[in-house]
């Protein structure tokens, strides 16, 4: 049977929220597939917000075996190709050991490991994106 179709060919402005970690939950992957499909359909992905365990998708040190899907790399490619605004929640990320150079310096840590393409910022960026998007869809947790 045919599923619901969106009204006409309208471009919809979407925000995607990711709550789950790669390799712990399929939801981290679902969010990626959804985002890629939305872009393919010509919709605007206003922001992808990684929150809670979702921030693990922005860990540059994630090193899956070669025969497994590399979700961090896949997100990075999608972010680069579509110039996506990809934000990892700074408070979720710091607790989980994901730091950019600035935070590493501030907290006197030896290394920074935020994957290229991702930006650390506050939860206000999720609220702001939700207020200016037509649809918000959340994955996992």
């Amino acid at each position: 049977m045919q599923a619901n179709q969106p009204p006409g060919n309208t471009v919809v402005k979407l925000t995607v929220v990711v709550h789950s970690a790669p390799y712990s939950s399929q939801a981290a992957y679902s969010a990626y597939r959804f985002t890629a499909s939305a872009l393919e359909a010509g919709h605007e992905v206003h922001r992808v917000f990684f929150y809670y365990d979702g921030v693990h998708a922005s860990n540059a040190l994630s090193t899956p075996p070669q025969d497994e899907f590399d979700l961090v790399k896949a997100w990075q490619a999608l972010i680069e190709q579509h110039e996506l605004d990809a934000i990892s929640c700074v408070s979720s990320a710091l607790k989980r050991g994901i730091l950019d150079a600035r935070e590493a310096h501030r907290y006197e840590k030896q290394a920074a490991n935020l994957a290229e393409g991702f930006v650390l910022s506050g939860l206000g960026q999720l609220v702001d994106a939700s207020l200016s998007s037509d649809r918000v869809v959340s994955f996992g947790a």
């Binding site: 809670y52 506050g122 939860l123 206000g124 609220v127 207020l131």
Partner: peptide
Amino acid sequence: ALLDMVLSAAVFDQ
């Protein structure tokens, strides 16, 4: 995590 979202949203006057 949800409470933090609520508190962040609260400052947006919605």
